[in-house]
Simulated assay, not measured.
Amino acid sequence: MTTLIKRASAEARAFNKTKAAPKAASRRSAAAADDLDHAPVIESPRKPRFAPVTFSEESGVRYLHFGTEWVQGAMRLSKPNHIELEYAQQMMAWLLFLATPARIVQLGLGAAALTKFAHRFLRPAKVEAIELNPAVVVAARTMFDLPYDDARLTVRELDAWDFVQDRANHGTIGALQIDVYDATARGPVLDSVAFYRAVRACLAEAGVATINLFGDHPSFVRNMKRLNEAFDGRVIALPEVHEGNRVALAFSGPALDVTYAALEKRARVLEAKLGLPASQWVKALRASSGQDGETFTI
């Protein structure tokens, strides 16, 4: 990969600033000092610190990084609405099981590949992306062709934890795509049982969550264990792709019992209409399920 193109950012400047020396406090009377000693301490909320957002380009593909060589997203310059990375394509595997739902949400914006694709091709769904780092939102719009908000698209600067805890979101989302990584890119930054239970609560009566995990890392086993606990075992992870990622699918609603023939038929429709490699997903499901026979059950 080419050398990272380093960009100035508010975060980078903040890291390099030296703290100003505190001003000497004025003298206080003994009585005033005593009052202050017993006054309640009010702490201002701490702002999160983010790694700088950086970019690289190679062979017609622009990559997003968080100040390291780890790829956080990608866009082929000649096909800005195409999903470039294989694992990101797999994050759309919920389409094998659901018609386009009323509401699709991404937790973690990255290079906005999923958000752009859903907004462009999955009408009339309302698409919402949740991203904590404002610099990532700016990068998505200026470097990765993410449109500005409209009647069907909303991008919110918000912590994914706060989003899933908000009861207003519970039971409202058909497809929830989770890709919450920091600069180290070695596992999701939100991975507790409580988080995954809240994710499940956000899903509609029949809904699917897709979660980007890092296969070659201890966090994978931990996340799968917690996902299975939160979703009562209704979780399956697709085989690892060449980027090292593994995508897990977690299901809510009634039990699924569908033939592979029906899934293959659905996959051919998705390939024809959306250009997604859906037949490969069916093969991956069959390989990962550990089930004999011609029916996928979960």
Rank of each mutant, 00 (worst) to 15 (best):
S78W: 09
A10S: 09
L146H: 08
I178P: 09
M92I: 07
M224P: 02
P188N: 08
F144A: 02
Y196L: 01
A113K: 00
P239K: 08
G110W: 00
V235S: 06
I5S: 03
P40E: 05
A10W: 11
A39I: 10
S56M: 01
W94L: 06
H170G: 00
Y196T: 03
V138Y: 13
P218Q: 03
A33L: 12
S29F: 10
D150G: 01
L132P: 00
A284V: 10
E69I: 03
A250E: 04
D162E: 11
P80V: 10
A237C: 10
Y148Q: 13
A255R: 14
R286C: 07
F144H: 00
G171D: 09
P147N: 15
G253N: 05
A160H: 06
L203C: 01
A185G: 03
L85K: 05
G290P: 09
I211T: 03
A206G: 14
T172W: 08
S279K: 07
Y260V: 07
L36M: 07
F117I: 04
A74S: 10
L213M: 14
S44K: 12
L176W: 02
Q280P: 09
G253A: 12
D35W: 12
R123W: 14
A112N: 02
I298F: 00
A237K: 05
K225I: 06
P52F: 04
P147Y: 08
L36H: 08
A140H: 01
H119W: 04
P101S: 13
A185Y: 05
G110P: 00
Q291I: 10
I42S: 04
E86C: 08
V41Q: 14
I104C: 01
E205D: 07
A93F: 06
A194L: 13
W281R: 02
D182H: 11
E205K: 11
A31H: 11
E240F: 07
P22R: 15
R49Q: 14
R222D: 13
F121W: 06
A21V: 07
P188D: 05
D150L: 10
R62E: 00
A250N: 07
L85T: 06
P147G: 14
K126C: 15
I211D: 03
T2G: 06
F195A: 02
D35V: 13
L190D: 09
A139V: 05
V221G: 12
D179R: 02
G174R: 00
Y148F: 14
A272F: 11
R246S: 05
T115P: 01
L285P: 06
G253Q: 04
M75Q: 04
S29L: 08
F144Y: 11
R62V: 02
A194D: 15
I298P: 04
F55G: 00
D216M: 15
P124M: 03
D149T: 14
A206Y: 03
G60T: 05
G110S: 11
R197L: 07
F214T: 11
P277N: 15
V189T: 13
Y181T: 01
P45K: 09
F66W: 09
A262I: 02
Q165G: 12
F144K: 01
N81C: 09
F15C: 09
N16T: 15
P277V: 09
D292N: 14
A111Y: 00
R268A: 15
L256S: 01
A12Q: 13
I173T: 02
A118R: 02
L285G: 04
A33W: 06
A21C: 08
K283F: 15
K273E: 11
K47M: 13
Q106V: 06
F251E: 03
